[in-house]
C-alpha cells in the first residue's frame, strides 16, 4: 500500500480542524451537548464494531460492559479519590478481561445464540448492581461536582467534554483502522466470513475472538467512564438492552462490515435522534423513538448493507475516487 499525502488527507485535516473550533462558534450547552453525545455514541459504536463488524459476533450486551466501566470510574473517584483517567485504564483492563473470560466459553455458540448470551450477561450485571449496596442499589450513584478540573474530569462547562470526546473518537477510530489493516483484523474478518476456513489457513478462532472481546468490551468501558463523568449520574438502567441498541443501530445504518460505516452511522443518527427527541417528544412521549425505529427498520429492509455497503459497490465511489485522484495529480503532479 502506497502512502501519500493528497486531497483526501487534506480534507480529513480540514474536518478535524473544523471540529476543533466548533466550541468557539457553538455556545449553547444544548448544541454542544448534541456534539458530545454524537462523539461518545460514535466511540461506543466503534468499540462495538470490533466484535460486531470485524468479528461478526453481534453483542446486545455492550450496555452492560459500558455500565461496568461507568461504575468502576465513578466508584473509584467517589470512594478512593482516584482520577477517572486512571479509572479509564482500570476499566479498560478489568472490564475487557472480565468480558473476555466470561464470554470465552460462549465462543462456540453461533449467531443469535451468542447474542442471547450477551443479553443474559448484561441483565445479570444489571440485577447484581440493582441489589448491591456499595453501588447505590437501584438508585444508582451521583458523581458529585465537588471540584472542577482535569483530575476529577468534572466541569460545569461542556467545552472540555467536547474536546475529550472528540479526542476519544479520533483515537478510537485510529485504533480501529489500525486493527482493520493488521494481522488481527484479517484474522477477525476471516473468522467472521467462515470459521472453518479460518482454521484451515491457520487462525485460532478462540484466541482471536478472545482478543476482540477484550478490546471491544474494554473500549466501551472507557466510554462508560466518560459517560459517568459527563452525565454525573449513573444507575443500573444504563445496562439495559435498549441502551445497547444505541450503539448497534448506528452501525446498522452505516453498514456493518466496515469501520467507517458505523462511525458515519453515529454521526448521522445521533443528531437525528436528538433532534427528534427535541421536536417530537413533547408532542407525545415515545414519538421520537417510533420515528427513529421506523427509519432504522426502513434501512434494514431496503438497504440491508447500510450506507457504506451501498457506497462501496456504487459508481459514486469510483467517480469520487477518480475526481480526488485528478485533483491530486493537479496539485502535486504525477507521482509513482
Amino acid at each position: 500500500m502506497r502512502k501519500k499525502f493528497g486531497i483526501r488527507q487534506i480534507l480529513l485535516l480540514v474536518l478535524i480542524l473544523i471540529c476543533l473550533i466548533v466550541p468557539t462558534f457553538v455556545k449553547t450547552p444544548y448544541m454542544l451537548g448534541i456534539f458530545v453525545t454524537t462523539f461518545y455514541i460514535g466511540c461506543g459504536t466503534l468499540a462495538w464494531s470490533v466484535l460486531g463488524s470485524l468479528t461478526g459476533e453481534i453483542s446486545l450486551g455492550h450496555a452492560g460492559f459500558m455500565g461496568l466501566g461507568a461504575y468502576i470510574g465513578a466508584l473509584l473517584m467517589n470512594n478512593k479519590h482516584i482520577t477517572p483517567w486512571v479509572g479509564m485504564l482500570v476499566a479498560f483492563v478489568v472490564v475487557g478481561l472480565l468480558a473476555a473470560c466470561l464470554l470465552a466459553p460462549c465462543f462456540v455458540l453461533s449467531g443469535p445464540y451468542f447474542t442471547l448470551v450477551t443479553i443474559a450477561f448484561a441483565e445479570a450485571f444489571r440485577n447484581l448492581f440493582t441489589n448491591w449496596d456499595y453501588a447505590g442499589k437501584g438508585q444508582g450513584i451521583l458523581v458529585p461536582l465537588k471540584e472542577q478540573g482535569m483530575y476529577s474530569m468534572r466541569w460545569i462547562s461542556k467545552v472540555p467534554y467536547y474536546y475529550i470526546a472528540l479526542i476519544m473518537l479520533i483515537v478510537f477510530y485510529v485504533i480501529l483502522r489500525k486493527i482493520d489493516r493488521s494481522k488481527l483484523g484479517y484474522a477477525l474478518k476471516t473468522i467472521r466470513e467462515d470459521e472453518e476456513t479460518a482454521n484451515a489457513v491457520g487462525i485460532n478462532p478462540f484466541k482471536y475472538k478472545f482478543i476482540a472481546t477484550f478490546i471491544s468490551a474494554g473500549l466501551i468501558a472507557v466510554v462508560g467512564v466518560f459517560y459517568a463523568n459527563y452525565i454525573g449520574y449513573i444507575n443500573p438502567d444504563i445496562m439495559k438492552q435498549s441502551q445497547a441498541l444505541n450503539y448497534v443501530m448506528p452501525a446498522i445504518i452505516g453498514g456493518i462490515g466496515s469501520i467507517t460505516g458505523p462511525l458515519l452511522g453515529a454521526i448521522i443518527l445521533t443528531p437525528l435522534s436528538e433532534f427528534l427527541s427535541a421536536t417530537l417528544s413533547h408532542i407525545a412521549g415515545g414519538l421520537n423513538l417510533v420515528v427513529y425505529a421506523v427509519i432504522v427498520i426502513a434501512v434494514i429492509l431496503f438497504r440491508p448493507t447500510g450506507i457504506m455497503g451501498w457506497f462501496d459497490h456504487s459508481k459514486f465511489k469510483k467517480k469520487m475516487n477518480d475526481r480526488f485522484d485528478a485533483i491530486d495529480a493537479k496539485l502535486f503532479g504525477k507521482r509513482g
Binding site: 461478526g56 449467531g111 441498541l245 448497534v248 446498522i252 425505529a293 432504522v296 427498520i297 434494514i300 429492509l301
Partner: peptide, 23 residues
C-alpha cells in the same frame, strides 16, 4: 447468508412496538 438482518429487524420492531405503546 447470516441471520443478522432478521435479528436487527426484530429488535427494531420491538423498539417500534414498545414506543408506539408508550405513545
Amino acid at each position: 447468508d447470516g441471520d443478522q438482518n432478521v435479528l436487527f429487524l426484530t429488535c427494531c420492531l420491538g423498539i417500534f412496538l414498545s414506543n408506539t405503546a408508550l405513545l
